[in-house]
Amino acid sequence: MIIIIIGIILLIGIMGATMKERPFPSWPEIFIRDSLSTVQGMLYKPTQGTTEILTKMTHFYNIYNENKALKANLDRYAQVSAELEQVKGENDRLRTMLEIRDNKLKGYKIQTAEVIQRTPDRWNHMITISKGTKDGIKPNMAVVSAKGDLIGRVSSVSTFSSSVELLMDIEKGNYISASITGAAPIYGVIEGYVMQKDQGFLIMKKVPKQIKLTKGAYVTTSGMGEVMPQGLMIGVVDSWTDGDYGLTQTVYVRPLANFYQIEQVFVIEKKM
């Protein structure tokens, strides 16, 4: 009985000692994480591949339906060609938008990494990626999804793998300085994450009170605070309320990235 109580006290002591941010974990942890990450990588990739084949098959089925619809539409050719003009214009516009985003990313040093595993419970939103100190990954580097949307930052690095803290875990005190794009950028700080109506929102605080916000405006990293590089896509403005003490506004931001089924990520190094 006494042993059990001593054990519990000891474990709670260890929890308290290890709960703070540790960018470089101790060597036994590094050893275990690195050796298991290779095995986990072997398990994770084939599963992702299989699900990809499944989704592709559903895509094929959709194409079949689409083909039917298009054949029916063939009679209304003129209308379709008019639509085509419109779509062409939209396509060009999207292309220019994409180029802008590409150029922004080109300013940084980018490394591709595979996702190895994800924490099963939902209190630690962490993924492990397949590159570590050997490949030059350092703590606090920004991590973006394959589409270029910010998903988190590197929280601790081992030799061959590193842990990435997703945006949902932001409450641990690693705030992100962000800006809402518009005629003039509006600056604020992303400080938390809430679930509302089955959807997750990032909470952006310290937005000046006088400023009129628009729904659907893009939110990007501002580059202030020296942690994240500038111009990474975070999300779009969804709603806003009065902030603490009524002096500022609190904005709810819908993240653009899909935090599940992440297969590949880019780790972004800030160029000095």
Binding site: G7, I8, L11, I12, I14, M15, T18, M19, E21, R22, P28, E29, I32, R33, L36, Q117, T119, P120, D121, N124, M126, S155, S156, S163
Partner: peptide, 19 residues
């Protein structure tokens, strides 16, 4: 302990509960 090391940052929670 293995679970704590691989999947979480804080060591001890699952060691205690699973034990």
């Amino acid at each position: 302990l293995l679970y704590d090391i691989i999947y979480t940052d804080m060591i001890g929670v699952y060691t205690l509960s699973m034990g």
